[in-house]
Write a protein that binds this DNA or RNA. Structure first.
Lengths: 120, 120, 120, 120
DNA sequence: GTGGTCTAGACCACC
DNA sequence: GTGGTCTAGACCACA
């Protein structure tokens, strides 16, 4: 996998994990790839995957059993949706609003831009 | 001033400068604070402000007269407006659209969030 | 059964065995669950229970008859009581005293906490 | 510095940091040793210190400024005292109470043990 | 096999 | 100088 140079790999792995969960490609409450497996697949050092898994642990999105592996939490999907939604409303929307004011754009302008982006 | 830990301070200072220009709080073709003044005000290392000013120089948004100080270019407002608008439509809007799909949000949801943000 | 993540499971199983003996819920000189039975009940790998039983064997707290099973030693209760009491006075009490000094807690504080814990 | 073999070094470093704060040997809101300095002093790999500092960051006990260093939070002393006290009451006291019941020890027994430990 | 910890050393952006 | 990230590889306890 190719990673964006401007963002830490472990953060991109977290994004990847979140996406896989949101797309329901990883099943809740069942085992996910081991650190070594995922590291091999992503062509990345195991420590880097471990760091990503560790952050997900802190967020309660996954849990682990010693000597066995990592598992998705039962409510991982909801948890991530909440995390993302909250972050969206708290941070991105205000930034967006501020930017629109600065660029002198109306909500109608925004809507048309979004529709255009969705078509392309 | 408090800075976001996830983004280089000098980039945040550039954002700040752009904002001040767009809000017409700095006048075109007239002197802006010296590196030291701004560094003192922002509680930041002068090197950091210098780096931000340098980037603005490269963009042609400001110019300097040796021994006198830094000045806003005559067309700084238009320049920035163009830079920002283009970047907004090319990058931010598509990201926004993608995120809305992922979070299963409609345009109406977005509008209500924006209105809410504008009230607060 | 839920185990504490910070301590090896086999040690926690030993603690559990000791508790069962001290609470006289396992009878001296009579058969205790087989490795497989206990492993099934605790939802744990049989190897893990085997490791715990082995330690108990070494301590002389249990013995086994080949092909028949594991049994509590006749003096298991006394043995464990002595082991635990000694360890309590030698290690835990000094640690407790040190911690109380650090947290600036008096003996009266401690007593009230204990009473509260006993009520709940 | 010598570390206990049975416990991860980074956790022991956290304990050390907490002790230094509780003993007021590190001043609040002022700089603490850099990762490299502390690593050198403790004869440990910088990564290990970084891991300890990182956990303290999460707990809000310290904060950092990029390119400058780590600093104690203003309320680090209170924070740690609360963390430790809470952990003491929630975990250690109930364990103590349970153990006393199991070993058939009264509160008076405990008090005499503690006094004895404080004399020695 | 698994995860957890640790080392040695590298490169980078930032101040 | 600082912290942040990442690699390569080691050893250990645990299941």
């Amino acid at each position: 996998m190719r990673f964006d140079e401007t963002k830490p790999i472990y953060l991109q792995i977290i994004d990847l994990i979140f996406d896989l969960i949101l797309q329901k490609r990883w099943e809740e409450d069942s085992r996910i790839p081991s650190i070594r497996e995922l590291a091999f697949e992503l062509e990345v050092n195991p420590n880097t995957v471990a760091k990503a898994y560790n952050e997900c642990l802190d967020l309660g999105v996954i849990y682990n059993k010693r000597g066995i592996g990592y598992f998705l939490s039962k409510d991982s999907y909801d948890k991530i949706l909440n995390i993302k939604k909250e972050e969206f409303i708290k941070n991105e929307v205000p930034n967006l609003a501020k930017k629109m004011r600065m660029l002198n754009l109306s909500i109608d302008d925004l809507i048309s831009y979004i529709n255009q982006a969705n078509i392309e």
